[in-house]
Design a protein around this nucleic acid. Structure first.
Lengths: 269, 269
DNA sequence: AACCAAGTATCGCTGTACGATACATTCGTA
DNA sequence: TACGAATGTATCGTACAGCGATACTTGGTT
């Protein structure tokens, strides 16, 4: 059995909460740590691995896993070699997507956009230093695992991220750049603070952001921001294509207006 | 702000576990009950609503919601009118899909199938009396909310369900029929046990299952089962189209062989 | 056959989480 | 503008839920 590698670039949000809050139920935090152990996993995990990753003892892991198993949030792997996340998780996925008003508003517009552009169209939502993909309308050729709901990418080096940053103050942008763990995900990834600021400025002027192969070789993406009524950026719309079919200039000329219209339609309710 | 109605036909799996199991951490169960409160919600929920739906007191709900909020699994609604599921849920969605070997194996085949048939293609997984959609490759026209990951449908009255039942013993099929809460979801939904058994038998003979408007008016769907090496059915592949474009016979003649091939390719590793 | 690791079971003590209640704040209505 | 209802927030003493050390079972590997 082959399992998919983890390959998650986005930094999971800081789990550095806790402390002695009288309302904080730590058993729940333990459960979520156990579930989060799978974020870094590329295969089913054993109890001990879960214990280690979740930062708790064997007994604790045993109890938590047992409980989550009863409830359907953790399952035994098909060939009984370890634990994997359980199907009940998907029920909550549905709830999240259904009840997120931005997703609700954006969806018909995205479908329409996808129909027009015939390239991949994504909706991502901001969570701290990353963007999380909430809706993905694939085009023909990509592999499914490059386009999973729940995948996340860093803000600092993506088209969507820069579209989002374009709607922030310079101070906020600097803070994001500062706090991000800036790695060269591909050789083309822009990691220099000054260069990132320049790209953000460019996005402000153009009304859309562009990224070339900064996450994936051969990929070109443009994005426009989705904002709250008060102007706070909440996420982005992405259009992504292949550099084997497009040069950057044509891609932008063709799709930037469409991405702009779509974002506009969503932003004004 | 408009919110999407619940409209979930599949029966959520029984949460009738618990009792006095020494390894069972009930605080975790409480947390999951709170998250599950959103399954029946069509709008953000207040603390009291969550307490009621989750079957616990106000204090308990307060603590659990507080904790889940710290962790990002629950958020305040945008206009501060109630609570909604939080974005961290999507991280676990991704883990589930990544680590499910069936999804992993099926995905490339599904993408290829989608390219060929140009209609909606879905992958569903069995969970008790229902099928949960794990991957959905939309066609042009549907509304996004009809095609959410995590949506579930009953086994007894769907093409996928009957494809799955076709790989079970008569006794197992009867048990599913018996335990299912059989409602007429549309006027065309087949709810009579004998009629269901006949459709299952038909699926056994044809190697695929057919359903006409049993879940959604105007929809035609065929499905083939995905099975474990030992023959246990695990889920199904669906191809769904519109009756405004297809008559049943043409649809079957055209797509049944393709659905069969795809399932075959996935089933033999 | 012998070993090692994974999963399962047991148990007494402690500190976590329980739930009642009281407070604060925001909303809709008169 | 004042009122009342409902929502979210804070506090506190007590009981029992969950903690973690340890020991047992099972199954796969060398």
């Amino acid at each position: 059995m082959r399992y998919i590698q983890k390959a998650e670039y986005g930094v999971p949000p800081s789990t550095s909460i806790d402390e002695s809050d009288p309302l904080f139920v730590q058993a729940i935090a333990r459960a979520m740590q156990v579930l989060s152990a799978f974020h870094a996993a590329g295969k089913p995990l054993t109890l001990n691995e879960i214990a280690a990753a979740g930062g708790l003892g064997k007994s604790g892991a045993q109890r938590v896993v047992h409980t989550l198993r009863q409830l359907g949030y953790v399952e035994r792997d098909a060939d009984d070699r370890g634990y994997v996340p359980g199907i009940r998780i998907l029920d909550h996925t549905r709830d999240y997507l259904r009840l997120n008003p931005l997703v609700a508003r954006a969806s018909p517009v995205l479908m329409e956009l996808r129909r027009t552009v015939r390239e991949r169209v994504d909706l991502s939502l901001r969570d701290g230093l990353r963007l999380v993909y909430a809706a993905r309308l694939q085009s023909k050729r990509e592999t499914f695992f490059a386009t999973l709901v729940g995948q996340s990418v860093p803000i600092y080096c993506t088209s969507g991220g820069r579209a989002v940053m374009a709607h922030m103050s310079d101070a906020e942008v600097d803070e994001i750049i500062e706090r991000s763990e800036r790695r060269e995900i591909t050789p083309k990834t822009i990691t220099d603070p000054g260069a990132i600021r320049a790209k953000v400025q460019e996005a402000r002027e153009n009304g859309y952001a562009l990224a070339l192969e900064e996450i994936l070789q051969g990929e070109i993406a443009i994005a426009t921001a989705l904002v709250a009524p008060d102007g706070t950026p909440l996420g982005a719309i992405h259009i992504a294509g292949s550099l084997s079919e497009w040069d950057a200039e044509t891609f932008c000329r063709r799709f930037a207006p469409l991405a702009g219209e779509a974002a506009g339609a969503i932003n004004r309710f």
